[in-house]
Amino acid sequence: MQSPPPCSTLIIGYGNTLRSDDGAGQKIAETVESWGLEGVSSLAVHQLTPELAAEMAQSRQVIFVDVYPNTGDSNGVQVTPINPKNSHSPLGHASNPQSLLALCQVLYRVTPASYWVLIPAENFEFGESFSPLTTQNIPRALEEIQMLLSRVEDYARS
């Protein structure tokens, strides 16, 4: 098996673009793709599927982008490292990043550094526009992604 390129990052933005704020993950993946950064690729997908593990195995770092329902406790972007040990079933349906990372580890014996970038959301009704809360946090999520990308570049240089 080939080792992943030294500075590769895969962005996976997911959610339903027809459910208002839920489409923000895909929007961010498309934005990052438009930057045209070397060693960075992006996928905008409706949902996480087991087939994504093959793409992940070719990357040094994977950044998942999604939304979380705003409950009023927190209204900011959250960045969380992902650990495959949090998954209950590595070979089952990969419907969350932990399961998908565990599947990548089992099938390809590769565990890329993985993060979850979560954007607060409040509108999941049918529609294609974002709420003010989600709209104001998209640039913040992009800044967090840029910081994660620079960490990989710093690691590759050392």
Rank of each mutant, 00 (worst) to 15 (best):
P112A: 07
N96E: 02
V79N: 04
T111P: 09
S20C: 07
G23C: 08
L142V: 05
H93K: 14
A113Q: 12
L133K: 07
F126T: 07
Q47S: 12
L48I: 12
I11C: 02
Q78Y: 03
E30W: 03
Y68H: 02
V32E: 08
F124D: 08
S41V: 03
P139W: 04
P6D: 10
Q47F: 06
R60C: 05
R60M: 01
C104E: 01
G127L: 09
N123M: 12
Q26S: 13
E122R: 11
D73V: 06
N16W: 07
Q47H: 09
R109V: 01
R109Y: 01
F130D: 00
S114A: 15
N123A: 05
C7H: 10
T134A: 07
S20V: 06
A54T: 05
E51L: 11
N123P: 05
L118Y: 04
R157N: 15
V65Q: 02
T49E: 02
T17H: 05
L149H: 04
L149S: 02
I119K: 07
S129W: 04
Y108V: 00
D21N: 07
A113M: 11
T17A: 14
V152K: 13
S95H: 08
Q2H: 03
T111V: 15
V65E: 05
G76L: 06
L142M: 15
A44P: 02
N86I: 06
W116T: 00
L148I: 15
V152P: 02
G76Y: 08
A156E: 14
V110T: 07
I12E: 00
G23I: 03
G76F: 10
I82T: 01
L107K: 09
W116N: 12
G13L: 12
Q58S: 14
C7P: 00
N83K: 05
T49M: 09
W35I: 10
L118A: 15
L100E: 03
D66H: 02
P97F: 07
T17Y: 06
A24Q: 02
G72S: 13
D66K: 10
Q146W: 08
P112T: 13
N123D: 14
A24Y: 00
L149G: 03
T9F: 10
S8H: 11
S131L: 13
V65N: 01
Y14D: 00
K85E: 15
L133F: 13
V152W: 02
A156Y: 08
G76K: 13
L118R: 09
D154C: 04
P120M: 11
L107F: 13
A94W: 00
G39A: 09
M1P: 06
S150P: 09
A94R: 02
S20Q: 04
Q136W: 06
S3F: 10
Y155T: 11
A24V: 10
P5R: 14
L133V: 12
R19G: 13
T9W: 08
P69K: 08
S41L: 00
K85I: 15
N123I: 12
A141R: 04
